[in-house]
Design a binder for these strands. Structure first.
Lengths: 282, 282
DNA sequence: GGCATCGATACCCTCCGGGTATGAATCCGG
DNA sequence: CCGGATTCATACCCGGAGGGTATCGATGCC
């Protein structure tokens, strides 16, 4: 199976429309139809049920959509990492670390400092992303390591090492009645009128239904809290970057958050290995 | 990047010889040289250093070899799983579980029985493989789930759930002096004259250097022990399938073995999810 | 220094992937 | 119930990418 065929099929499966898919791919519709037919013949499996009006995925098609995306990601990652490896021999090599904006700042600072002191350390670029993008960045080879927070972030398919566990705090607008309490419970937060928990994007970029404002990163979130439009549940370490207008209260019954360092398997990079080793020694 | 190019490059990188690689690929040497050159141009990176006598990998080439293998595995897995999904709608669907021959037999039997009793259970094919092949079978889509034993088997890139932990026993020829002891230590085993620990194959099929006979599965291993040519370190649960000529002694300072159930990420199969859930409830 | 080995180059040819034009089926509005 | 719009499939053509053979150039070895 060639990646071109896979790309074609995945696009059609996403659009469920040959015309639009062809447009997205920058080719005409007939060759696209043919390519998908050919793929089906070679696989000996129907991937799409088509009438002249509608296209739907078969069981096998759904499998190939999920698996094919993963495979295309792997190919893209191979390409990107190779390019980076090549660039790193000519210029200065750089390691890309991705973490959620506003989370684990202290840990990150300590890690970067400790790693920089290692012999053979390499410049580290830090990307601050929203939580949904981290996995994608790692999978696509745009990043080498990530700091993730279990159980919130998916660690599917990565190698991980635990770095530490912490409790969670409720972040509230300063002056809110609950901020007078020494500690609160999850039920207290759920019952807050007018202060819903925000919604985070899915891995595919959409948002789950429900009340609560949509947020993409921690800064947005804190701003919304300060504005009195939401409340938030965050790891304790966020306390250090709460500014005016925000207050925090420990939540006793929230699940603890584990910070893990994650990297793609098959990574043969000494820099990644060094960074991970440094991290586990903190 | 097309999978054909990747396959070509990976083959050359493995052989470090264009002629042999071309032969393995079933094409002539000149098109292969061209294809690799073209890939290098497109990536803007030298992958191989070639003199007219020898070929060696560059830094970037080593990266692409590792990443490219993973990507090719992912593509192959997508293809195989799609074929299986298609076959499963026409015939009876089957789940393929792979485990090491001769390990965790009780656990496996309990798991299969419990799963079969679930509503919506599907026939399960069991593959007994040598340890080195399990990861490959999962990665290539030939199997859906595996029972692995940490810390011996790599769990890189899979999702896992722990099923249980057990100690290890030394398996010795019946009548060996040590079998009189109630327990032994690792150092006792290392010092045994004429009874080396066997060597297991690497993921790539080769064997590490050293003394000790080469083995591919547990049955071979036990036979060698019975013949007095080796001793072995095995999880306790193996005790149930020791036959005549073999004796077991607990090893007090051996690292405990954790049995985990592992499956590829992105698995959208209900059957896999059911089986895993059943397993964690045992 | 001649020879063998091995990758690169030159050149040719086939077939595959892409384009345009059009057909066939289905849905919809009148 | 009929014509037009929509959408996927088919028919046909063309250019170029990919594969083959012949050969060159470089390098190590006896």
């Amino acid at each position: 199976m060639e990646t071109r065929e896979l790309r074609y099929f995945v696009t059609v499966a996403e659009e469920l429309h040959f015309g639009r898919a062809a447009q997205r791919l920058g080719i005409a519709q007939p060759p696209l139809s043919r390519a998908v037919q050919q793929l089906e013949r070679r696989l000996g499996a129907a991937l799409l049920d088509r009438t002249s009006r509608t296209v739907t995925l078969t069981e096998a098609g759904a499998v190939l959509l999920a698996e094919g995306r993963a495979a295309l990601d792997a190919v893209a990652a191979a390409e990107r990492r190779t390019r980076r490896a090549a660039a790193s021999t000519t210029g200065r090599p750089a390691l890309v670390l991705v973490t959620k904006a506003g989370a684990s700042n202290e840990l990150l600072a300590k890690l970067l400092a400790a790693y920089a002191a290692e012999p053979g350390a390499v410049p580290v670029d830090v990307i601050l992303s929203g939580p949904a993008e981290q996995a994608r960045l790692l999978r696509e080879g745009r990043a080498d390591v990530a700091l993730l927070h279990r159980p919130f972030d998916p660690t599917d398919g990565f190698d991980t090492e635990e770095l530490g566990t912490e409790g969670q705090i409720a972040v509230l607008p300063a002056g809110h009645p609950l901020t007078a309490r020494a500690e609160v419970r999850l039920a207290d937060l759920a019952a807050l009128p007018g202060l819903p928990l925000p919604r985070w994007p899915d891995p595919d970029g959409g948002y789950p239904p429900g009340p609560g404002p949509k947020v993409r990163d921690h800064a947005q979130l804190l701003q919304l809290v300060a504005l009195g439009r939401a409340c938030a549940l965050s790891p304790e370490s966020c306390r250090t970057n709460l500014h005016d207008g925000l207050a925090a209260v420990p939540v006793t019954d929230a699940p603890p958050v584990t910070t893990v360092i994650a990297w793609p398997p098959h990574s043969r990079s000494r820099a990644v290995a060094d960074l991970v080793r440094t991290a586990t020694r903190l």
